[in-house]
């Protein structure tokens, strides 16, 4: 497994190089000039061109790319045009929110999705299954901005139980209790994802339940709960594990709507705002980090497969 892991880590290099070229080209080929955004509506073309040159954007694109790549190889993702801070620090500030939000969302997904999925599968065809499946469909269909705003209206404005928006860092005043800022957003984000996990667990368990080894286990007279947990649920987890991995990665990079509704300083909102501001170093840095994240999660999912299913061999 160690050799496999090292080999996979080496394959990151050409992939990252290709990703860096694509990201750099896409970012610079879209129209728009960060100098124009900085100077505002009243700036003249001459003033914009002057600032653009001061920031080095008048150089040929390939020179800009290699300068950037050289710095990236030394661990320097550059300086944000907008924030005047190292890109790594800007990403780090967003990463705290995104990782905590994704983790809390995963907590809800596991807490809600897995038991209901198992219940739905074990009560297959009954009224319990009908209700849980309908509930899952409803949760999957609700737009997150709509659900988020309703949760704010009920739990923040009316009841005053949770803050309506924002997220101070855990290192700010309040410390660990600042996690309360993430309860409503994580529930918002968990609703559609938990619904998908319910559907996935249910479908996988029903598939596994029809297999010969499960029939054999039942024929041996094992307790039904033991059959469900040890023989059906565990085997169904193989498909669910991959979904968990990619859901976590997606929660970090794609929670834009939820981050916007709850005004969370996360990675998703950062990348969208950076595109609107044409903050090239931040866009490039964030996308590179997301690419790395997906590749690592892909690797972890493959390793988890091997752990869950001894038939899978890693070469």
């Amino acid at each position: 497994m160690l050799a496999y892991t090292v080999k996979r880590l080496f394959t990151l290099i050409p992939t990252l190089l290709a990703a860096s070229i694509l990201v750099f080209l896409f970012v610079h080929l879209i129209p728009g000039d960060p100098a124009a955004i900085l100077l505002g509506d009243t700036a003249t073309p001459e003033e914009i061109a002057q600032l653009s040159a001061e920031m080095g954007f008048d150089r040929p694109l390939w020179i800009q790319y290699f300068l950037w790549l050289g710095n990236v190889l030394q661990g320097d993702l550059g300086i944000s045009i907008f924030f005047r801070e190292p890109v790594l620090a800007v990403i780090g500030s967003g990463a705290e929110t995104s990782i905590l939000l994704a983790s809390m969302t995963m907590f809800w997904i596991i807490l809600i999705g897995l038991p209901i999925g198992v219940l739905s599968a074990t009560k297959h065809g009954t009224w319990v299954d009908q209700i849980t499946s309908s509930g899952a469909m409803l949760a999957a269909s609700m737009p997150t901005f709509w659900l988020g705003l309703y949760l704010i209206m009920i739990f923040s404005v009316t009841l005053g139980w949770f803050p309506s928006s924002g997220f101070p860092s855990l290192s700010d005043d309040g410390g660990i209790t600042n996690l309360r800022y993430l309860i409503l957003p994580s529930l918002t984000l968990a609703a559609p994802n938990a619904a998908l996990i319910v559907r996935l667990v249910r479908a996988s368990m029903l598939d596994v339940a029809r297999e010969d080894h499960v029939r054999t286990a039942r024929a041996k007279g094992l307790h039904p709960a033991r059959v469900t947990i040890k023989h059906v649920f565990r085997n169904a987890l193989i498909a669910v594990a991959a979904a968990f991995g990619f859901t976590f990665a997606a929660l970090i990079s794609e929670a834009v709507v939820t981050e916007t509704v709850f005004s969370l300083p996360g990675i998703g909102r950062l990348v969208v705002q950076s595109i609107l501001r044409r903050d090239y170093p931040v866009i490039q840095g964030v996308i590179l980090v997301i690419v790395v994240l997906y590749m690592i999660i892909n690797l972890l999912v493959d390793l988890a497969y091997a752990r869950l299913d001894p038939r899978v061999s890693l070469k």
């Binding site: 901005f145 705003l149 704010i152 209206m153 923040s156 404005v157 309506s164 928006s165 924002g166 916007t260 509704v261 709850f262 005004s263 909102r269 705002q273």
Partner: peptide
């Protein structure tokens, strides 16, 4: 950025 959130806030 979201106006609904500003008002609710």
């Amino acid at each position: 950025p979201d106006v609904g959130t500003r008002v609710a806030g």
